[in-house]
């Protein structure tokens, strides 16, 4: 086919353009939040002493880390939906940095004899199952957004999508989990989140092809 003919044919394909990727991301994020909240409050729920726990910095700090993860990964994902934009991948270091800071404080203020116990905790199985399970639907939504976009780096976009989903899921799970030590959070949360990140990266490479 001659290029000029192709142009004429493409101009005859009048299917209207869809919503902009940024708008789709916002819709997907709202939908994901709704689904995760419904699953969490329907099946799991916050821990019994939620209100007392809010008085302790270790409990509150978990939300700081997980929300920072969701926000920073979103800030990486959205530019990666457009062919000409560049994402600042260093933003992904914010949440690990915050977590490392809390670990240092914990190690400095707690005796070495309790470190191992705090790190292992009581809820590792729950953490490693509930976080990925809650994050699956958000990840699916984000992957659909990536598919509609035109990412210059679909693998990274998928990875960021996994971290957004993981951050969202972990935020809810943190309200249930009774292990508040930064040592526990730093040991198990990253494993759970990186499961979603790895899945997102692999799926993004396939689904984000264009």
């Amino acid at each position: 086919m001659k290029t000029e003919d192709l142009i004429a044919r493409l101009a005859a394909d009048p299917v209207p353009r869809g919503a902009e990727p940024r708008t789709l991301f916002t819709l997907a994020a709202i939908g994901a939040l709704g689904v995760v909240a419904a699953l969490f409050f329907g099946l799991i729920g916050p821990r019994a002493d939620f209100l007392q726990a809010l008085q302790t910095w270790r409990f509150d700090y978990k939300f700081l880390v997980t929300l920072a993860l969701a926000a920073s990964a979103s800030a990486v994902l959205v530019p990666l939906l457009y062919p000409e934009s560049r994402a600042n991948l260093r933003l992904l270091l914010i949440a690990p940095g915050l977590l490392a800071l809390a670990v240092v404080i914990e190690l400095a203020t707690q005796p070495a004899s309790v470190w191992a116990m705090s790190a292992v905790g009581k809820n590792m199985i729950k953490c490693l199952t509930i976080v990925p399970a809650l994050g699956i639907v958000p990840l699916l939504f984000m992957l659909l957004v990536i598919r509609r976009g035109a990412s210059p780096r679909p693998g990274w976009a998928g990875f960021a999508a996994g971290l957004v989903s993981g951050g969202l899921a972990a935020t809810f799970y943190a309200a249930n989990c009774t292990d508040d030590s930064p040592l526990f959070v730093a040991t198990w949360y990253p494993v759970a989140v990186l499961m979603l990140g790895g899945l997102g990266a692999a799926a993004g490479k396939v689904i984000g092809r264009w």
């Binding site: 192709l6 493409l10 902009e20 990727p21 000409e84 509609r148 264009w210």
Partner: peptide, 23 residues
């Protein structure tokens, strides 16, 4: 041309179009 056509919703009207197209 085919990709530009199928991905035309990824151009933001506030952004320059040539970098988008050439990317």
């Amino acid at each position: 041309l085919l990709a530009v056509h199928l991905k035309r919703h990824t151009w933001r009207q506030s952004e320059p179009i040539l970098p988008w197209f050439l990317s």
